[in-house]
Design a binder for these strands. Structure first.
Lengths: 157, 157
DNA sequence: TCAAATAGTTTAATAATTAAACTACATCGC
DNA sequence: GCGATGTAGTTTAATTATTAAACTATTTGA
């Protein structure tokens, strides 16, 4: 077994490479769908929520409502989502994926999801529990540090 | 211990959340530095390479050389990198980080790197080896699937 | 019931990117 | 050596994405 310091350095590097590879995957997904990264992230949020208002979407995306309007115009024109009237608020709309979009997302992510599950089934439950704990701790740490960085003002000293 | 199917589902979800949190961290880093995501990714590539030509940078970023010129203009104006003449090719330039940029990057990433190392030191060497293997397998799988998705043409059926 | 707030759209201006033309230098075949 | 061809980076014009702010329609609540 390698010493811990080496393993720790290797995990740091591997994590960075994994993030790069996630980025490349998302780029390929955008190219396949013929949309940009903003719109892909938007589709992801709609999938999570199942149905979501334009305002909630804008807030979650970190976009202005104006930008959200044009993004939804693009996405709707591409046939991936639809605005539907909000039954509870006549000013509002809700956004839903089209069936065609769900099929496309499945064509892109279905394979890697199934392969990932197969890969993970090669680990013992104890190992999986370790991996899960690791990922959750890493995320918690990263979220705390994001708070710290948000307060950071760099004077470019 | 939870059953494996539950652990597998939980790891999938945790990975997604970790990616979102990485995205949020990078956004905060951009805000602190006063640059955009393109330029942040660019700084990351320069850090990795230590010194890199404009053309290599453009290729790595997936940008045209024209876009690279304007990105480097922005980054140089912000004081984070410098063009220096390539000693081996009088047409070429090489890009390097400024000392000020290195300090800013350390101010942003130094904390999380140290905290990450401290967090990992709470795991046994065997556990770390499992985590490392997991991340590397996940990346390999994702890279194979990226290839597949690159060939995918979706007719939006 | 009317004033203030909210949801979404529109508009004008700005920022980032591409494609293509351009300049300067390097390299390859003769 | 020398000219043809290729390469590195920049410039320019057009396109795309985003913001800020004004605007319309509706809701909320005093």
């Amino acid at each position: 077994m390698k010493p811990k310091t080496e393993l720790i350095a290797a995990i740091g590097e591997a994590t960075r490479l994994f993030q790069d590879s996630t980025d490349a995957f998302d780029d390929a997904a955008c190219a396949a769908l013929g949309i940009n990264r903003t719109d892909l992230k938007c589709l992801g949020m709609i999938v999570e929520a199942n149905s979501i208002s334009a305002g909630e979407l804008a807030a979650g995306m970190g976009l202005t409502r104006g930008a959200m309007t044009t993004a939804l115009d693009r996405i709707e024109r591409a046939g991936y989502a639809r605005r539907v009237a909000d039954p509870d608020d006549r000013r509002g709309i809700r956004v839903e994926l089209t069936p065609s979009c769900m099929r496309s997302l499945e064509a892109i992510w279905g394979g890697i999801r199934r392969e990932g599950e197969a890969m993970m089934s090669g680990y013992t439950a104890a190992e999986l529990a370790t991996v899960l704990r690791f990922i959750q701790e890493a995320r918690a740490l990263q979220q705390r540090d994001t708070q710290r960085v948000r307060k950071l003002k760099l004077g470019n000293t």
